[in-house]
């Protein structure tokens, strides 16, 4: 069972490595979206420091949503997905493997890149630390919840826009607690409460989301 899990993760990572432009597109979208805000709002560092947590989180949300489309779509188009669902291994495990690979490709680069962009917003080092920690805890939840939407809209016309309509409302708690944790840390209140909530959301989505995604894939792939 774990061999199957490992194989799927390895396969998805290998495919992503062979076609690097996909990873880079998400990453550059994140960078560009974040760089747009100072241009629109103005370069005052005090304002920027204040809005930074929200801006980073919204950008991460949108970047991870944009990347959802490639989670199942390619496998669905060439029939791999059906073969995966036909294997004796539980579909939940395969979903988890695919989501993990997806997070490693699209989520982790955002986490690693955020300190650099944080410097552009003149964030203090503890704010950057908090930001990285929240992104590290929050982006896996985004991938897990987003997988449900990606599976539901598989093969539909206008799937990309539909995904945003389905998934963004479900992302809201992650956004609130993610940005809230950074703000609480900066203001000296301590972000522990928010971080615990983020962890709770991650655990809940880790248990529930693969179930829903597997069920949705069964509906979509028949």
């Amino acid at each position: 069972m774990f061999k199957a899990f490992y194989t799927v993760v390895k396969r998805d990572l290998l495919l992503a490595m062979r076609n690097r432009s996909d990873i880079l597109t998400t990453l550059f979208f994140f960078i560009i979206a974040i760089s747009l805000f100072p241009l629109g709002i103005g370069p005052e560092l005090d304002t920027l420091r204040e809005i930074a947590p929200g801006v980073f989180w919204v950008a991460a949300l949108l970047a991870s949503m944009l990347a959802l489309e490639r989670l199942f779509a390619i496998d669905f188009a060439d029939g791999t997905l059906e073969q995966l669902l036909l294997t004796p291994q539980p579909a939940i495990l395969l979903v988890l493997a695919k989501v993990l690979a997806h997070w490693l490709i699209t989520g982790v680069p955002l986490v690693l890149l955020s300190p650099l962009l944080g410097l552009q917003y003149d964030l203090s080092s503890e704010a950057i630390q908090a930001l990285m920690l929240t992104l590290l805890l929050g982006t896996p939840s985004l991938s897990l919840i987003g997988a449900i939407g990606a599976a539901l809209t598989l093969g539909l016309r206008g799937g990309g826009v539909l995904v945003s309509l389905l998934v963004l409302p479900l992302y809201v708690p992650v956004l609130i607690f993610g940005a809230g944790a950074v703000e609480a840390t900066v203001s000296g209140l301590g972000g522990a409460g928010h971080l615990f909530m983020l962890g709770a959301i991650l655990l809940l989505s880790l248990v529930m989301a693969p179930l829903a995604t597997a069920a949705a894939l069964r509906v979509s792939a028949e």
Binding site: I148, L152, T153, L156, R157, G158, L162, L165, L166, L168, P169, L170, M208, A212, A215, A216, V219, S220, E222
Partner: peptide
Amino acid sequence: FLYIGYIALHSSIDDKRRADRATAILILV
């Protein structure tokens, strides 16, 4: 937004039986 998402997903799937099953998952989430 959840209501709107349901209506949008339901109307974009042509096979209504499949739409029912797909949206059931969305509603339960």
